[in-house]
Nucleic acid binder design. Structure first.
Lengths: 335, 335
DNA sequence: CTGTTAGCGCGTTCAA
DNA sequence: TTGAACGCGCTAACAG
């Protein structure tokens, strides 16, 4: 392959200095003289023409080195193969692109070790900041992240011990809405099927569930690693107990429990009514469709990215970012 | 924030030259003297200790600039929010990580314009190569990609006009397996529900379908943008025609048609039997579960990544990569 | 007003 | 084991 065209080649070809080429390429030239440098229109055109002809592409490495900015954000999610996080990834990508940022992704699969490795690995890639979904049990690693001084925003969950920039859904409010919806459908004996994971999205929903339906309201916990099999047992129990309404705490346990009940001949949405959390394509199969609390993923992504860009900008200006800890809370909607 | 520790700081602190620090950091020193440079064990230890104490992190930008390698691969998929591509993304991520590479992702949403923008954008980020799922109708952009001389590997589909490195599933074979599975279940009047998209994964499956069941075998095409509504019409038609077996050409149309038929009171897997392509969590809902042809996503990802690394290595050695065009074909399995 | 010179950022690598 | 050039683009300082 021919070696890459550099700013120097353009300069030689156009018969000007490399500085001038740099100015022109960065649009630091304006006809109205507002900017520092003025270049004659003809020179500018010539440079642009040569650059185009020689197919010049600035070296991002050189630019990164010089300005000390990579325009790369590290995004650490739970699992890219889960539609919930996949959607967030896609939304984040779009916002980042608009701002000229690139994202690199990693999946923790809820393993704190992995979380730590990813943070470390992304640090080495000089990310300007992070958007993270902290894996369950990754407090230690989060502490290191805080101490690193690297800007970051947490999404989807929070940890009570950490006062850090966070964007998430009002899960307690969402649960209250879910319960109301279920009661409106006529359910009187309502149970909840949750994940065994102790992350705030689950615990907040469970908290609101118990606050609304009483401390003895039944909550099942499915183990992350073994959802399907545990769902079978829970299904039997739900039937035995005569439950007529179920709230599922997120898409994976939701799918598992609906599946287990359906296979047992339960008429979904008649014998037992449901309200889910997060989208799943199985909800629409039933009549009436299983309603679900939809988190505003688009909005969360935009807010998280912009929050992060803001923190980065503050750090750039030399401001102290260690005190930033606003939680941006968004409402889920019943679908 | 304190400014970053550089190799120079380490050198000063340890009382050695920056070159030596660089060698030590890169492990270019070996006790057995196999390598070019030898450093006394004590100096080595001192340098490492200082580096650790000062929390030294090499600047990837400087390294990139110097060696002219970014260790970044651009991955362009159809849609990160689709579980099929999300899974590929996750698998690719893992392989890349092992090889010290970073991935950046983009979703085309089957829009050639977007595809072009992503290629352009990734080029500007100095990716060393691409792994792409070319959007339908992106021949022009693919031509440019070929001419750019940048290494790339196509996955999931191919275009007959392009002889380029490709890793994909043997879709015709998969279809034959699917048909056999359906017939074994007792289906005698088999139709196919496909995507309107003219991409090889669809057309190859359709080709094998017609070759096996005759040129008049019925194939429905759902428009990408309007799957749900079109599925409704197709469902009515399937019922009217007395179809007793359906092969769905991928997960999205599969879910749509099963849903539409289920809502019409069809007993899935008894009145009409199915075989799908690609995993969906709705398949397991039925009894017996809807079987499906599972593409070896893990294997595809590994092969694609290693193929790409190999091409990059060849280019590095100055070899001509423009003639490489092997297609790696993997088998799907019936689940 | 138009343009140039020269040093910087940081790790790598060759010649000494 | 070291000095110094190098990769490439940015930009302060300066000149015609």
């Amino acid at each position: 392959m021919q070696k890459n065209v550099t700013i120097k080649d353009i300069a030689r070809e156009a018969g000007v200095s490399i500085a001038l080429v740099s100015f022109v390429m960065n649009n630091r030239v304006e006809a109205d003289g507002k900017n520092k440098y003025r270049v004659s229109e003809s020179t500018k055109e010539r440079i642009l023409e040569v650059a185009r002809r020689m197919n010049y592409r600035p070296s991002s490495a050189a630019r990164m080195l010089r300005q000390g900015r990579t325009h790369v954000i590290g995004v650490i999610l739970s699992d890219l193969a889960n539609i919930f996080y996949g959607t967030i990834a896609k939304e984040l990508e779009k916002v980042a692109y608009k701002h000229g940022y690139t994202l690199i992704f990693g999946s923790t699969e809820e393993d704190p070790e992995r979380f730590g490795r990813l943070v470390q690995s992304f640090m080495e890639k000089d990310v300007e900041g992070f958007i993270v979904v902290p894996a369950q049990g990754s407090e230690e690693c989060m502490t290191r992240l805080v101490h690193s001084g690297k800007p970051f925003v947490v999404i989807d969950r929070y940890h009570p011990d950490f006062n850090v920039p966070t964007v998430l859904t009002d899960n307690e409010d969402a649960m209250r809405t879910a319960i109301k919806a279920l009661q409106k459908q006529g359910a009187t004996k309502i149970d909840m099927v949750s994940y065994a994971m102790r992350i705030s999205s689950m615990t907040d929903r469970e908290k609101a569930f118990r606050e609304t339906l009483g401390p003895d309201a039944k909550i099942y916990h499915l183990a992350f690693e073994n959802v399907e099999q545990e769902a079978e047992k829970v299904a039997d129990d739900l039937i035995a107990r005569g439950t007529d309404g179920v709230i599922t705490a997120s898409n994976v346990p939701g799918v598992a429990i609906v599946k287990a009940l359906f296979k047992r001949g339960i008429h979904i949405q008649r014998d037992i009514k449901f309200v889910g959390f997060d989208y799943s394509n199985i909800y629409g199969l039933f009549d009436p469709a299983i309603p679900y609390m939809l988190q505003p993923l688009h909005e969360i992504s935009i807010q998280a990215a912009e929050y992060l860009f803001q923190i980065i900008a503050m750090q750039d200006k030399g401001e102290d970012i260690s005190k930033i800890h606003d939680r941006i809370i968004l409402k889920a909607t019943l679908q």
